[in-house]
Nucleic acid binder design. Structure first.
Lengths: 402, 402
DNA sequence: TCAAGTTAATACACTCACTGGAGAAAGTAA
DNA sequence: TTACTTTCTCCAGTGAGTGTATTAACTTGA
């Protein structure tokens, strides 16, 4: 349902604009905000007063004079509230307390032992975590839950998660009822691109695609500046796009799916075949001749050491992946393409090859202004993603009534 | 630049809501609008008065009583203003005067003879058309221009049109300067999906894709309820997505592009090869044994008459096209897929085959609620599209300052 | 050193769009 | 005919933003 216009709406809209200005450009003076956004100084003063009373912003000393009275600067207070991020990935639950800048304050990682009771375990662990952090629940703006698989954000349901055998679980409802807090629920790839967009070091444009290559292959999509999830939360199933009509049949029912060529399990199986033939590769020695120890990290290390087999594997991977990426570009015409996941991290050779292929194969106008790069996040990627999902919604004005 | 909140903004927003209610649900009473949208009756009365003064709505008699005073109904006046639609397609310019419901009042089709002077011809022909229709320019809300190729809507430029050799033409500027009217510029496929969304007989959901198969293969995309054009207007280049890594090289630099398998030129060339081998097909006889007369319409006719070769050709086309469509579904997860263009029109067999293939190959959750259908528009599709581009923007409230 | 000019922030009267209540107008139902 | 509904308008009241006057604080240059 759409909101109608009234005085509350004006104030709310302007308050969002002022808070945004302080978050993005703070410390900043009242008069600078007024000039930048065409608001009267009076209005800005009054809104800043409100924001101060709620604790979101505070005075931050005196600025430099530009020929008159020195400005009193206002800054954002990221620690005035906190939020809880939860990530469910494979068989591991991560719970963290973060501030309004997505900085992790406390974190806890719990392995899931009994798969049948995942949901019960999650609820119990969050409960315990909330008790442990001993922070006033009044100051908690909500819980953000991210997980693999297909998630229906609108309905607040985990639609389909094959690994944990979750089908149509109304998790948002469960969490809201138990903890009496607002809850956000989203897919992890989506969360990652939101993190890049809102919290990344380098700015992300209005049309960005984030590709992860790990156990599976997925894509997070930002279009028109918004997250795009599709009709039932299944958008970005990049791993199941066909690049070869005559290719390998896939479990999903389709043929020649990208995932069967470039995901880690696919690469691993090819490495094994090679080793079993008795042929030489650094990958084997880096893993101490134990095939179970071969990991994406070792593969990447071998590539960086220019092991011929590893390099050849990357060439092929780049070739397959580029075909998929070119399709993406032709359909979405993004201006930023971000590569993440274990296979691509710290792997400049792969990135370079992909860029080379893509720029040759795609329509020129679509790659002219395209930037291809790796993710800027390190360790806390998961939690940063969870925070981004919540924060981008929390700090954005919307005409849709909630 | 984002708009700030003030009293004008509330009124404008509410006025849009009221006008929308009258357009969508009219004739309707003031009190029904108030109840439906949670506005006070006083506000509705006042806004309706404004709208009446501007001529957009008018009283439309007395409605049925529901136990009290009979309501005075308000209806939308589509003829209170007019707009000019222009379509540039292959070597033909179509210009039309339409009302606010996209009903064509007057139309003119002009062949373009000298390709070098396309732009000059367009400007001249619009000038002449405006004189001929003898309608007060005051009542013209703008000109909507649609064309093939890649169009940058934000910059108002035809970015790339290979057939007419247009590169980076600032057409919007040209038109605005010459006619002193607001101008909209968009790609024709985009226009078609907007027509389906806003003016179609059956409703289109918030995530829809429109595929046209004709001389080329293109896709118009609506996501989150908005038109999606991409970073530089090149989104939806569906024809240049790879479905076969080992396939036919394409002019675009890529390999195995869909367009080389299912576009009309591709089909035509296969029909010619077949006929030249001296083999029998209804297509040849329906074209009076003149290969130059073979058209998409004749092919479709042969399919409907169950000509074995034509049917086999459709089976193959469906197979290629389905692979491309499955990719689209996996990336966009739409809830409506609309097929248009000369090859698919009046061709239920092709539609059925595609639906069959797609439902088998795509992830189940992505096709569960998917509706695949043909376009609902007939003759005036081009002009309706042009009108849709303008009208959807004209009647939509936006927080972005213009 | 001090007056003139600038910039920053606040105080207050004013404007304007929405709201709610009073009341008129025009029906229905018993 | 009376009681009750529903539709619509009029009018005073509310509140958020605006412009102007005012105060505060600083820079510049004579």
């Amino acid at each position: 349902m759409r909101r109608t216009g009234d005085l509350k709406l004006i104030q709310e809209l302007n308050q969002f604009i002022v808070l945004d200005a302080i978050r993005e450009s703070g410390p900043i003076s009242r008069s600078a905000i007024a000039k930048k956004h065409n608001l009267s100084l009076t209005t800005v003063t009054s809104l800043v007063k409100n924001l101060m009373e709620e604790g979101y912003v505070t005075e931050a000393g005196i600025g430099e004079s530009s020929g008159g009275r020195k400005p009193r600067l206002i800054k954002f207070c990221p620690d005035s509230r906190y939020l809880i991020g939860v990530s469910l990935r494979n068989s591991r639950i991560t719970i963290a307390e973060m501030n309004l800048n997505a900085v992790v304050k406390q974190q806890k990682i719990i392995p899931v032992i009994q798969q049948e009771q995942v949901i019960a375990t999650i609820l119990e662990q969050i409960e315990r975590f909330l008790e442990e952090i001993q922070n006033d629940k009044e100051n908690c703006i909500g819980i953000s839950f991210i997980t693999q698989g297909i998630v229906n954000t609108a309905k607040g349901m985990i639609h389909y998660n094959p690994k944990l055998k979750l089908i149509d679980v109304p998790l948002k409802k469960y969490l809201e009822e138990r903890f009496k807090l607002p809850v956000w629920l989203d897919n992890d790839t989506n969360a990652h691109i939101l993190a890049e967009k809102h919290l990344g070091i380098r700015p992300v444009h209005d049309h960005a695609i984030y590709i992860t290559i790990g156990d599976g292959v997925g894509a997070g999509i930002v279009v028109n500046g918004q997250m795009y999830r599709g009709a039932s939360g299944g958008a970005g199933e990049f791993g199941h796009t066909t690049i070869d009509r005559g290719g390998i049949p896939c479990d999903c029912g389709n043929v020649g799916c990208l995932e069967n060529y470039v995901s880690w399990p696919a690469l691993y199986s090819r490495i094994l075949t090679f080793i079993k033939k008795g042929r030489q590769t650094l990958i084997y020695s880096l893993a101490n001749e134990d095939i179970r120890s071969i990991s994406p990290r070792i593969l990447v290390e071998a590539v960086n050491l220019k092991d011929p087999f590893a390099v050849e594997l990357m060439n092929e991977t780049a070739s397959y992946l580029s075909a998929g990426i070119v399709n993406l570009l032709h359909l979405f015409n993004p201006n930023t393409l971000i590569l993440g996941g274990e296979v691509t991290n710290h792997n400049p050779y792969l990135l370079e090859k992909i860029e080379e292929n893509v720029k040759r194969q795609a329509l020129k106008i679509l790659v002219e202004d395209l930037e291809i790069r790796q993710t800027t996040f390190g360790d806390h990627l998961e939690m940063t993603g969870a925070a981004a999902v919540l924060l981008q919604d929390f700090f954005e004005f919307s005409l849709i009534a909630k």
